[in-house]
């Protein structure tokens, strides 16, 4: 099989726009929704209403939204633990995601999973996984099941650059390549695994180059450009669906917040963060939409108001939902049979 050698693809904000006005607004809305949702989650965390870890996706929204735009609704999605963005981009009701963060019975997993384990199987979202790299072989298995059952679905497996030095990355993608499975690995390179800069601990710090270990096509793209993400994921997903085997995308991005709540961020400078914020994916997409005439300023303002209302509704829903019944503690351990 001819494999495209790993390559960089440059993307710019305005070149070659192939997007409808409705799509442009939908992406703007979803990215804004993720942003506002997480700002409110951060606030609720500060008030002690959300427990455990809370890993915010703020700054990386274009990856989830661009990727979901390229996937079909019945393509399978499986992710790492920084996962609120993917479920929201997939169209899961924000109130059910917020309720899960609040540990309420109305949450996606009935309050049993929390922030790091968001799943909505009827939307083909197979969950967030919190052991770094642990879900990569699961993606291979889901793709194997699709191939075996002759289903035309592609599996999109999201993880961070920090997962590319652990065994499951190599073991999982190797088998996917051996069996030529329909799988696209979407690596979000936000440059730090917790507080450790990737190049300090990875012999190869361009993730896309690691794809040569599997002889599969790979691209490095601008992950803060929603259109570039959509286009690259679309290209890769359809090639994989057509029998081209697994593919890898390295989406370069940056998280604006700490690794999790309470991260003092001693490992990076304020200047670096500010510089990254100048590449804010939402601001960029807003500018692109306006300068290209895809939508008017009033459209975007209307969306901002809608998002605000939707997030407030999600918070109200989570606040007013009941906690899981104590009987839930011991249910769902095994399937009863």
């Amino acid at each position: 099989m001819a494999a495209t050698s790993p390559s960089r693809v440059s993307a710019s904000d305005t070149a070659g726009i192939d997007v409808t006005g409705a799509e442009a607004l939908d992406w703007f809305k979803k990215m804004s929704l993720i942003r506002r949702f997480e700002e409110r989650a951060e606030e609720a965390y500060g008030q002690g209403k959300i427990g455990g870890f809370l890993h915010l996706y703020i700054g990386e929204e274009a990856v989830a939204v661009g990727a979901m735009a390229a996937l079909r609704p019945d393509d399978d999605v499986i992710t790492h633990y920084r996962d609120h963005g993917y479920v929201l981009a997939r169209g899961v009701e924000p109130k059910r995601v917020m309720a899960e963060l609040y540990g309420k019975a109305t949450g996606l997993s009935k309050g049993k999973g929390g922030s790091m384990h968001m799943a909505d199987v009827k939307r083909h979202v197979w969950g967030g996984y919190a052991i770094v790299g642990g879900h990569i072989p699961l993606a291979t298995g889901l793709a194997l099941a699709n191939q075996y059952r002759k289903l035309p679905h592609v599996v999109a497996c999201f993880f961070g650059e920090g997962a590319t030095n652990i065994g499951t990355f190599f073991a999982g993608l190797n088998l996917a390549a051996v069996w030529k499975l329909a799988l696209v690995a979407i690596v979000e390179n936000n440059r730090y695994g917790m507080g450790t800069a990737f190049e300090r601990v990875s012999a190869v710090s361009d993730v896309y180059k690691k794809a040569c270990a599997f002889d599969i096509p790979a691209e490095q793209i601008d992950g803060n450009d929603v259109l570039a993400v959509r286009d690259a994921v679309h290209r890769m997903v359809e090639r994989s669906r057509a029998g081209g085997g697994p593919q890898l995308i390295e989406a370069m991005t940056y998280r604006f917040r700490g690794h999790s709540m309470g991260d003092p961020q001693r490992y990076r400078t304020k200047e670096e963060v500010e510089e990254a914020k100048a590449r804010d994916p939402i601001v960029r997409w807003r500018r692109t939409v306006l300068t290209s005439g895809l939508a008017a300023k009033t459209d975007l303002e209307k969306i901002r108001d809608e998002v605000e209302a939707e997030v407030e509704e999600a918070v109200r829903f989570a606040e007013n939902s009941p906690a899981p019944d104590p009987s839930e503690l011991c249910s769902d351990v095994l399937v009863s049979e």
Partner: peptide, 26 residues
């Protein structure tokens, strides 16, 4: 070879792939 799958020596992939395949209906 579609139903009897020889795997590499990678137990995390054998079990992980089997878990994923089970989730996916096999």
């Amino acid at each position: 070879d579609k139903r009897i799958l020889d795997t590499p020596i990678a137990e995390e992939a054998i079990v992980g792939t089997a878990v994923g395949a089970a989730m996916g209906g096999l």
